[in-house]
Amino acid sequence: MKNQRTIANLNINETGIIAGNQQENIPLKLIQMGCTSNTKIMLRMKAPSSDPLCIQFGGNDIALRLEEAKKIAIE
């Protein structure tokens, strides 16, 4: 899956849907906040030097580090 896009590839204000079978790659805390496979997310903003990132889903604004964002594939 060389060209699989991840959260880290999103542009600001671009929406994406988290790909199926991503359970392993999404940190537990994020899943418990409601971000699972097939969740629609939007990249809200990036901190300076593009790390961490802030994503928006279902009314939440959640920041996560680039390292984790790179692992989560989107459709």
Partner: peptide, 10 residues
């Protein structure tokens, strides 16, 4: 195993 995840409230 915990990673950095934080809510940015309004």
């Amino acid at each position: 195993k915990e990673v950095f995840i934080i809510e940015l409230p309004s």
